[in-house]
Amino acid sequence: MHMNSAPHLLAEDRAEFERVLDDALRHAHERPELAAIGQRLNATQLRTMALNATALISTAASAEYEHYRKIREEARAPAVTAGGQGSAPDAAWSDGNGAGFAAVIAVLAPVLAATAAVIFLLAGYLLKMLDPTPSFATPLVSAGWFFAALTAAAILVAAVGLLLTALRNGATQVPAEELTGELPDEVARAKDAWRHALLERGILPFLQASLADPSADPTSTAPPRHVSRIPKVGYSGPEYSSPSEGSTSGQRPTFTSPDFTSPDFGGPEHQPE
Rank of each mutant, 00 (worst) to 15 (best):
G83F: 07
G83C: 05
Q85N: 12
Q85S: 15
S87K: 14
P89V: 11
D90G: 05
D90L: 14
D90I: 11
D90K: 08
A92K: 13
G96S: 07
G96V: 06
N97L: 15
G98N: 04
A99W: 03
G100C: 08
A102L: 09
A102Q: 06
V104I: 10
V104E: 09
V104R: 08
I105R: 06
I105C: 02
I105V: 14
I105Q: 06
A106W: 01
A106V: 02
V107G: 07
A109C: 03
A109S: 09
P110G: 02
V111L: 13
V111K: 10
V111W: 05
V111H: 08
T115Y: 11
A116W: 02
A116T: 04
V118T: 13
I119E: 04
L121K: 07
L121Q: 04
L121T: 08
L122A: 15
A123R: 11
G124L: 01
G124C: 01
Y125Q: 13
Y125H: 15
L126P: 00
L127T: 02
L127D: 07
K128E: 08
K128N: 06
L130R: 11
D131V: 09
P132G: 04
P132N: 06
P132H: 05
T133P: 05
P134F: 01
P134N: 01
P134S: 03
S135Y: 09
S135M: 10
F136V: 08
F136K: 02
F136Y: 11
F136C: 00
